[in-house]
Structure formats: structure tokens, C-alpha cells
Amino acid sequence: MDTDWLVQLATSGATTLVGAAATDAWQQARLGFARLLGRGDAGRQELVTARLDRLASAVEQADAAERDLVRQQLLPAWQARLADLLEEDPAAAATLSGLRDELQSQLPAVQRQWVQHITASAAGATAQGVMFGNIINQPAPPAADRPRPRR
């Protein structure tokens, strides 16, 4: 099964979540992600809510100039949590997608710019993107410059 779309959805969901921290959209994000990740289990939802509160606290306590850096540092853990959720329950993708879209429309313009969407839809197409880092593509050397395999 091709799971690239699950990774992409987990990434866009996580960037929306951490982007919502310390904004007017936070309470809705907190409630929606607690329900989603709690999966109907009150104890699990309480644990997720505590994690979400730590996320918001970390962003809120950072100087305004440092908030994007804090978000960047917190992002991988939330990407992993959402990827695990989608791997275990692919049906949760519809809920995550809807929550992501709803929250993005409420984010301040500067936070919407922080959320990245990359799509490649043609057969054999490749889409690349990075936030807060670099992508370095090394083209293959021309055939004449490639070493020949030894026999």
C-alpha cells in the first residue's frame, strides 16, 4: 500500500497544529486534536490534552521572534503522532483533513504561510519541499562520467 499520502497528511496536520499554538485558533485546535488523537478513550484524550497544553505553553513562553523556531522543534513529535494514528487507523484521515482545513482558514496570515502544501499528481512525478532547512539535489553524472561496474 502506498502510504506517501498518509505521511503528507500527517505533516500538514502537524504543521497546522503547531502553527495554531499561541493564536486565536488554539482552543479549537486543542479540542479537535484531543478528540482525534484520543480516539474516544477519555484517558487517552486527557493525556493528549496535557501534551497539547505543553505544546502551547512552549510556544507562548518563547519570545515572539523565537516562536517559529520553537514550532520547528516541536513539529517532528506531532508528525510522528499523527503518522502513527493514520497508520493504525487510515479512516481517521478524513477527520484530520477536515480539522486541518478548518483550522487553516482561522490562522492569522503569517501562520498560514508557515503551513506548507506540496502536491505531485502526474505519474512518476516527484514533489519536494522543506521548511526551515535545505533540499540539495545532486543530478546523476552524465553516462560517460560514470564508473563502469567491474566484472
Rank of each mutant, 00 (worst) to 15 (best):
M1D: 10
T3V: 13
D4F: 13
L6K: 08
L9W: 02
A10S: 08
A14E: 03
A14R: 01
T16K: 05
T16H: 07
T16Y: 06
L17R: 01
V18D: 02
G19K: 12
A20H: 07
A21D: 04
A22R: 09
D24W: 03
W26Q: 01
L31D: 10
R35S: 05
R35N: 07
L37T: 02
L37Y: 01
L37I: 11
G38L: 04
G40E: 03
D41L: 11
R44N: 06
L47Y: 11
A50S: 13
A50L: 15
L52T: 00
L55T: 00
A56K: 00
S57L: 08
S57W: 05
D63Q: 06
A64Q: 10
A64L: 12
R67M: 04
D68C: 03
R71K: 09
Q72F: 11
Q73W: 05
Q73M: 08
Q73A: 11
L74M: 12
L75K: 05
P76F: 14
W78Y: 14
R81H: 12
A83P: 01
D84N: 11
L85E: 01
L86K: 02
E87V: 12
E88P: 02
D89W: 08
A91T: 14
A91R: 15
A91V: 13
A92E: 10
A92G: 07
A92H: 07
A92N: 04
A93R: 04
A93T: 04
A94T: 15
L96R: 00
L96H: 00
S97V: 03
G98K: 08
L99M: 04
R100Y: 03
D101K: 15
L103E: 04
L103D: 03
Q104K: 15
Q104W: 12
L107T: 02
L107Y: 03
Q111N: 13
Q113W: 11
Q116C: 11
Q116I: 15
Q116M: 15
T119Y: 11
A120Y: 09
A122D: 15
A123M: 07
G124Y: 06
A127Y: 04
G129C: 01
G129Y: 02
M131S: 14
M131V: 15
M131Q: 14
G133M: 05
G133Q: 07
I135Q: 03
N137S: 13
P139Y: 09
A140Q: 12
P142Y: 09
P142K: 09
P142G: 08
A144V: 12
R146D: 01
R151W: 10
